[in-house]
Amino acid sequence: MERRVVFAGWLCPAVLLVPQMAVTIVFFFWPAAQAFNESLRRGDAFGLTTHFAGVANFAALFASPNYLASFWITAVFSASVAVLALAPGLLLAVMADRVVRGAALYKTVLLIPYAIAPAIAGVLWMFLFNPSIGVLAALLRWLGIDWNYFLDAPQAIMLVILAAAWKQVSYNFLFFLAGLQAIPPSLVEASAIDGASPRRRFWTIVFPLLTPTTFFLLVVNIVYAFFDTFGVIHNVTQGGPGQSTEILVYKVWYDGIVGLDLGGSSAQSVILMAIVIALTAIQFRFIERRVHYA
């Protein structure tokens, strides 16, 4: 006989659902609906004269070359941050997994950057690379590199990517390490007995078994690069030079808070919301098929 808890009537389940639903509605659906409503309106900041504008805000965005450029910047930025945060994380995890003595110390030290807020990470990197006072900037100058990220766009982009990725390496390291430790040692030992080299063992046994972790981290890292890197950009470049580091989420903040263009800013957040929903759906739908769940 099937063992199932059956609730009598609808009242009890409804009551049990209320807290979760309330949190979701108050903190997610309601603000999202507000943003959507605001994105269809235009008016002054004080709300004295607002009127329904249809899709005018969206049309204005897609007619703006700067907004379209921001898409490319965000794509390059997010992809680079994800790769640069995942690869070292995996490498460090594989190394730390082998360490026998002092393993706890290594792990603790490697985790420290994760405890740092993106804004602080931004300030840290800004001080290291500031063209006039940075220690590493002085080193670069000494090496003959004309370092001035206030004017040089590629340098500015590299700097914010490094600062954003650095902070996330720890997080990835932690999950990769947990993933590695969940792989049954017997599998690796069996292939070692069959004569597989460490490199071969990694790519044919360990890496495929890590794919659920890698997949999960890929999603998390891209969402991180899209949304949580605001502090890094704000503290290091403020979107400059020109608009070369103005990623989408920074532009939402800038147009809304600094520019007080609530309609345009809301339209951008609606677009951002759609992108993240689409991105997550694509990742789960297509990439997950190729993921090997142990």
Partner: peptide
Amino acid sequence: VQISDIIAEDLESAFA
């Protein structure tokens, strides 16, 4: 606010 930033951006392009 935005206009002064826009001008700063274009000045940066000119200086670069």
